[in-house]
Design a protein around this nucleic acid. Structure first.
Length: 435
RNA sequence: UCCGCGGUAGCUCAACUGGCAGAGCGGCUGGCUGUUAACCAGUAGGUUGGGGGUUCAAGUCCCUCCCGCGGAGCCA
């Protein structure tokens, strides 16, 4: 009986007899020789089944095994330059778990529709595995980043009674006879816990019922939102910058193999250096009107940027760019007005380069009760529902800021994948909930 | 919701102005002792998304519905 190992550790066992357990990823066969590419979740390894060292039945079995056959393989690990990765296993025994002959995903190209219908199987392919690993790394990097800076993770509710930014974009559910919504942000709750703990963040799924159907949208996506007391607008942006740089650092350091599989040009990620440019909304509008190609109508001051504008702005720099000071009426009620420019708010959107769109949205929060009441009325929001929130301005209001960063958008950029749907195992999209 | 593109073999696609529905991959059979999406030969595989219409004749033209993709608005 030989030691069972995981493929990622294969190099440490060269010269030894070992057992692998996993799936047949691919097979290349000769009459007296089979190259079995076996994967076990930790990696993949070429296993060589040669006629002169195996019984006839085993060779016949190799003939019949199709892709994704589950099996256990024993043999000796050898260094060999001809093998992908430089290591291969000389097979001495194969124990079949399940023979598969008709795995639907083949080695040739497939269309999006087919792959999405087979998402549960598509996840086994190398690019998808790489993306899931990068995702895991980013989640860990974020947790470490906030922990190291004295933040406390406090998760916020998913059922919420009221809408922060208008009800049209929320999924509603029956909360035992009462109407509830699936959360769109944990921001207001973060402000409450920040007043208790100083620096907090939440991380979880968030839901948008918008009928958006683009490469940047999901109906269910994961967002990390942080809130910190005594952070002003500038502190907030510097902190976002630090988070992005740290995330890139972690991924470049720990996901080299994954980025390679994804064909990601890492120079593009390395180019993201501090400081990220800051551009006033007013200047962004001017830039769009002066330089944006193919524009026929004048972009009107006071409008919100659409996807083409965001893409254009993001492409002007090799690093992410902050757009600041949006006109107050285009942004949420809780954002603080800029004392030096009261028509605008102390908010920022961080746009990714290469046209990946908005990664982060953040702002300093309004801390004056009177002003915030005025804004709630201006936005025609139900005052009663926000009484608890107003209490935060009644009992020891302090300056504070925060932001939200979308995990899948960030991953789309880091991995350089064309569509956000690949950055989450089971994407929830417009009219798409299977599997 | 709106705009654009598409739906043909298990998969990816082809079929000029309407005129016998095809290829590659995958499957199966056979060949090959070092393959790298292995290769070579053979073979099976079809209600051309559904319904209706025009025509001697429809994958192709018209109407309609369904589904998918890309995008807009909105947003992370």
């Amino acid at each position: 009986m030989c030691e069972t190992i995981r493929i990622r550790d294969a190099k440490e066992h060269i010269g030894q007899k070992v057992r692998l357990r996993g799936w047949l990823r691919n097979k290349r066969s000769g009459k007296n020789l089979h190259f079995l590419i076996v994967r076990d979740g930790s990696g993949e390894l070429q296993c060589v089944a040669a006629e002169d060292s195996l019984p006839v039945e085993t060779m016949e079995l190799c003939d019949r095994m199709g892709i994704e056959t589950s099996l256990e393989v024993c043999g000796e690990l050898n260094a060999d330059d001809r093998a992908p990765g430089g290591v291969e296993l000389q097979v001495t025994q194969i124990d079949l778990l399940q023979l598969v002959a008709d795995y639907p995903i083949t080695k040739k190209e497939h269309g999006t529709e087919f792959l999405m219908e087979n998402r549960h199987l598509w996840l086994r392919s190398s690019k998808q595995i790489a993306i899931m690993r990068v995702r895991d790394m980013v989640e860990k990097a974020w947790a470490d980043f906030f922990y190291d800076r004295g933040f406390v993770r406090v998760d916020t509710p998913i059922f919420t009674p009221n809408a922060v930014e208008g009800t049209t974009t929320l999924f509603d559910v029956d909360y035992h006879g009462e109407k509830a919504f699936l959360s769109q942000t944990g921001q207001l709750y973060n402000e409450a816990t920040a007043a208790a703990l100083g620096r907090v963040y939440c991380f979880g799924p968030t839901f948008r019922a918008e009928k958006s159907k683009t490469r940047r949208h999901l109906l269910e996506f994961w967002m990390l939102e942080m809130e910190a007391v005594f952070f002003d607008h500038e502190d907030n942006m510097r902190f976002q910058e630090e988070l992005i740089l740290d995330t890139i650092r972690a991924v470049l350091k720990n996901c080299t193999a994954e980025l390679e599989i994804l064909g990601r040009d890492t120079a593009k990620l390395e180019a993201a250096k501090a400081p990220f440019p800051r551009m006033h909304y007013r200047d962004a509008v001017k830039l769009i009107n002066d330089k944006m190609p193919g524009r026929e109508e004048e972009f009107e001051y006071g409008s919100d940027f659409g996807a083409p504008e965001e893409t254009f702005l993001g492409e002007q720099f090799e690093r992410p760019v902050f757009i600041t000071n949006f006109p107050a009426h285009t942004k949420a009620f809780y954002m603080k007005r800029d004392p030096d420019d009261p028509e605008t708010v102390l908010a920022s959107d961080l746009l990714g380069p290469e046209g990946y769109g908005e990664l982060i949205g953040g702002s300093q929060r309004e801390d004056d009760l009177e002003v915030i009441l005025e804004r709630v009325r201006e936005f025609k929001l139900p005052e009663e529902a926000f009484q608890w929130y107003f209490d935060l301005r009644r009992f020891g209001s302090v300056p504070h800021s925060g932001f939200g960063i979308g995990l899948e958008r960030t991953l789309t950029w880091l991995c350089g994948v064309p569509h956000i749907r690949e950055t989450i195992a089971f994407p929830r999209m417009l009219h798409h909930m299977y599997p």
